[in-house]
Every structure is written in structure tokens, then in C-alpha cells.
Amino acid sequence: MTDPERDTRVSQHYRALGREEPPPGIDAAILAAARRRRSRWAVPVSIAAVVVLAVGVTLRVQMEERRGADEVVLSPQVMQTPPPAAAPARKAARDAAPLLQSEPARPEAKQEMRAMQAPAAPPVAVAPAEQAASGVAAGKISAAPQTPEQWLERIAELRKAGRDREADRSLAEFRKRYPDYRMSEAMRARVAPR
């Protein structure tokens, strides 16, 4: 027995002690953990997205509160409903947005805003999808306070209203922003390009 690594007799007896295996429940838990951690960045990225969204919502709420205190009543209905104006008016409203309290850039936008009784109405209310994407990307406070579901709902509304170009654009932004989002078949049918 010169080789210290070899002792067949001990080995055989040791093996006869039993070949225990871990319980199946533990196997399952470990394998599930291995699958869960496959995508190392999935969790941090989604946490970051939630944080960005939460900050956006908080800032928006603060802005609303401040404005509410300054300017008395502002109908939520008016804030939520997209104005009936066509694309140029919305663009104007967006252009005017950074100026906020100052004069709107174009007459039609001015008129539209006056109609809404809110000169500083954030552009988010007009075109939530586009603003959400650009606002978050630029780290501006105009991040849309909406969940992916609300966003999709908005795209579905655009489709329903026959505003396909806007819906396409918004959907493209959505996919850029939430590349891993898995929408239901029903939702897909409602937002997908026709």
C-alpha cells in the first residue's frame, strides 16, 4: 500500500455506508434558482425602470399639487383627455412645454392651452407615449406617470381612433423602452399594426 490514495477495501466499505442523494425538493429549489439567475441584469434593469417611473410620478404629482395650489381648479378630465387638435397643434404644445409659464410659441397652441385653462399643462397629457420615452431618456421631469399597461391602453386607443401613425410610433417607443415586456395576446391584437 505505497500509494496513499488507494485503498480498495476502505473504499468498498465506505461505499457500502450508503449512496444518499439530496431530497428532490432541494434539487428543484436549486435548479429553479439557477434558471432565475440566468439573466443577471434582468432584475437590476427592471428595478431601475421602476425607480425612474416612480421619480417621474412623484415629480409630476408635486407639480400638480403646486399648480393646484396656485391656480385653483384644474379638471382632471381636461388633463387626461387628449385634445381634439391634429398633430401640428400637439407639436406646438410640446415645443412650448419647456417655456412652461412663458408665452406659448404658436397661436394655435396658445388657444388650445387657454381652452384647457392650464397654461402650464404638461405635454405629457397630450402625447404620453412619446413624452414618456424622450422624457425618461433625457432624465427630464416630464417622464410619464404611467405603467406599461396604461401606455399600451393608450396605443390601443390611438389604433381604435384610426391614428395609426401615432400608434406605430408610440408602439416603437414602447418596445424600445420595455424590450422584454410580454404583452397578452389580446393586447397584442389591439396594439399591433394593422
Binding site: G18, E20, E21, P22, D27, L31, A34, R38
Partner: peptide, 22 residues
């Protein structure tokens, strides 16, 4: 597995689970 192949982990696990457990 490091590169995202979960099947590779399952193979490794199956091979080593008994000995490590004992």
C-alpha cells in the same frame, strides 16, 4: 452556464449532487 446555458447547469448538477451531498 455562465454564458446563460441553464441546461449546462443541470448536467453539472446531476453529476455532482450525490457526491457533494454525501
Amino acid at each position: 452556464y455562465r454564458q446563460g446555458d441553464t441546461g449546462a447547469f443541470e448536467t453539472l448538477y446531476a453529476r455532482h449532487k450525490g457526491p457533494l451531498y454525501r
